[in-house]
Design a binder for these strands. Structure first.
Lengths: 170, 170
DNA sequence: GATTGATGGTTCCATAATGCAACCTGCTAT
DNA sequence: ATAGCAGGTTGCATTATGGAACCATCAATC
């Protein structure tokens, strides 16, 4: 059966997974980020089936993270480039790198990121925008935002800690 | 056919995708992060098939991101909790939230994160550890790190910009 | 003491997605 | 005329998914 889609889910994580929630799509974005823009190159680098690559590219274009650019006529040839939305999604890939380095490799990092202007090494960290402090997921609890369905039962069930801390209607 | 696995890939992104590279696994981690630890609760919240939930939980435990904790005998009952590795992976989920808010919702955010100690709202941003500046993926280029396979051809092919900037052996 | 309910699964089936190989098309270079 | 490149499409065998039904263990209820 077709995989479930939660494009309508009131959750940024669920919706993000429509773009990144499979094995290949993030790797395709990675290729674009690293400078690989053409069908055959991607296919070779990734070892992905050509039919699947076709489908994924179409999906990613449809979702607006990739742009299909014609770079010659006769014969028409195309390249795939990240859009603004695509670059925003690429941050999620960038965020995977320190995680991978710390938890998935015995040895040192396989790949390093550098800044195009300064040529200095870049080390991505997730911090709180206000305080600048690194984020520790244990330290967090979720609460409903403006776009969360107003059904009170759902909210209470879903965000117990939030309502405990704020009283019935925080 | 079984999906390809690149556990051996010299890429943090590819390896991370062994944990996060499908639709359900990240959502299961999300449930744990939000305080849902039991089989039936997860099944109901996610609307996932019970057989699939079983498989995913087993995988996540095997990969060390979840821990299966017995919370009673007679009958034996179990809960699933994030490990240290799991909390590290949860940062990636947290990183999805600002992306989703900005690009996947017309309206305002559906869910907000708060700090358990201060009860203040937390807004996650990805920054460079040294400079504290927000990371812009356009600004980055990748180069081989210590654990990248030493095969020179592969390195040159893969990291063109890196070698251009540094000369043959940077 | 029989039944209901909670919890945490397993089994079976139809459908969808994946991986692989082969093939097609338009044009260029030899 | 022939081979090669780029970007696909088509067909097929194998897996994974979603859904529903079923099972087992114990506690509490009628």
């Amino acid at each position: 059966m077709e995989r479930k889609r939660f494009t309508a889910a009131p959750c940024s994580i669920a919706r993000s997974l429509d773009i990144l929630g499979d094995w290949w799509s993030p790797l395709i974005l990675r290729e674009c980020l690293y400078g690989t823009h053409r069908f055959d190159q991607m296919q070779r680098w990734l070892g992905i089936g050509r039919n699947i690559l076709t489908r994924r590219l179409a999906l990613l274009v449809e979702q607006g993270v990739l742009e299909r650019r014609q770079y010659q006529d006769r014969p028409p040839r195309f390249e795939y480039h990240l859009t603004d939305k695509g670059y925003a999604a690429a941050k999620l890939l960038v965020a995977m790198m320190p995680f991978g380095e710390e938890w998935l490799f015995e040895e040192d990092e396989p790949i390093r990121l550098y800044d195009r202007e300064t040529d200095r090494r870049v080390r991505p960290v997730l911090v709180d925008a206000e305080t600048g402090e690194p984020i520790d997921p244990r330290q967090l609890y979720p609460g409903p935002g403006p776009a969360f369905p107003a059904d009170t039962d759902v909210r209470r069930e879903r965000f117990v800690e939030y309502f405990e801390r704020r009283g019935e209607e925080g």
